[in-house]
């Protein structure tokens, strides 16, 4: 972890009464920089926030958006909850699998995409909803999958 990331984590810690409150934001800072939360990265976060490594790892493992394994350059989340299911997300997901050649939870061999299913993204009016990195895509159809992925190199 770079000194800049450590600085940022220390700044975050200052926003709260107790420094442990900054743990989730700190883990995101580290994850954004390192790509995923490797044991070494977790150790650095623990050290910077002066928290036990056991606690830091335990907390990180609880939440779905912390990656404890390497992920692709772009993470694609396809919502599969009820509203999206009633709007055909399964077909979108199948198409994604076809185009990427991986199953949910996996990363393409070229390291470009990781495919994941998501619980309700709070965008049901746009079902089926897809999140690529920080961009939300509305009412995605199977036909749109390929051009959509093409935008992410």
């Amino acid at each position: 972890m770079t000194e800049r990331a450590r600085e940022e984590i220390r700044r975050l810690a200052g926003l709260y009464e107790h420094r442990q409150s900054a743990l989730l934001p700190a883990l995101f800072v580290a994850q954004q920089e390192a790509g995923y939360l490797s044991p070494e990265v977790l150790e650095s976060v623990a050290e910077t926030l002066e928290l036990p490594l056991t606690e830091v790892t335990s907390v990180a493992s609880f939440y779905g958006l912390f990656y404890l394994e390497p992920v692709g350059r772009h993470v694609v989340h396809v919502c599969t909850n009820l509203s999206c299911m009633l709007n055909g997300c399964q077909r979108v997901l199948s198409r994604m699998q076809e185009v990427m050649g991986v199953r949910p939870g996996e990363t393409t061999p070229d390291g470009r995409f990781s495919l994941r299913t998501a619980e309700c993204l709070g965008a049901c009016e746009e079902a089926p909803a897809v999140l690529v990195d920080e961009d939300r895509w509305a009412a995605v159809t199977p036909e749109e999958v390929e051009p959509l992925l093409d935008r992410y190199r």
């Binding site: 044991p39 056991t54 790892t57 335990s58 493992s61």
Partner: peptide, 15 residues
């Protein structure tokens, strides 16, 4: 500590 969550929760140490 507890790791992961829900029915996959496990007790243990990191790694």
């Amino acid at each position: 500590k507890g790791f992961v969550r829900g029915f996959t929760s496990e007790i243990g140490t990191p790694l």
